[in-house]
């Protein structure tokens, strides 16, 4: 069941966060947002979300770096991470997964693709 599960959306594009939030809320998820990697790391330590949707291309701390830090943290490494990537190169995806991400999705994607990944990693 998606009810009550909290997802943290990390993306520097507010419009994208808003579009994803609308759909995921309609599906019954609780959505929290962060606009950059630094903000995200603080948020995660405080609120311990059930799943993280993380954009790769962000200023300062990019998605790979956020991913690496989370997966190195014993208390946080269990949280599933889905990377949003703009590139279709398989090596970039390997790199993302190498940093410990649990899955990735390439922009532009469709909701059903994102929803099925979320459900899969939340064991819904």
């Amino acid at each position: 069941m998606s009810q009550g599960k909290t997802i943290l959306l990390i993306d520097d594009e507010a419009d994208l966060r808003e579009a994803i939030k609308m759909k995921l809320e309609a599906e019954g998820y609780q959505i929290e947002q962060a606009a950059n990697g630094v903000e995200a790391l603080e948020h995660i330590k405080r609120n311990n979300p059930d799943l993280i949707v993380l954009d790769v291309m962000m200023p300062e701390l990019n998605g790979y770096q956020v991913c690496k830090r989370l997966k190195e943290d014993e208390k946080l490494k269990h949280i599933p991470i889905i990377l949003l990537t703009g590139r279709a190169h398989s090596s970039d995806q390997f790199w993302g997964l190498g940093m410990g991400a649990n899955d990735y999705i390439t922009k532009p994607f469709e909701f059903h693709e994102l929803l099925s990944l979320i459900a899969q990693h939340l064991n819904d």
């Binding site: 594009e13 419009d15 609308m22 590139r87 532009p108």
Partner: peptide, 24 residues
Amino acid sequence: AAHELKAPLTIIKLSLENFKTGVL
């Protein structure tokens, strides 16, 4: 360029999907 072009496309695409699926 790939990132810059794909970001707005993704936003438009998902927003249209929100309309179409009745979320709005």
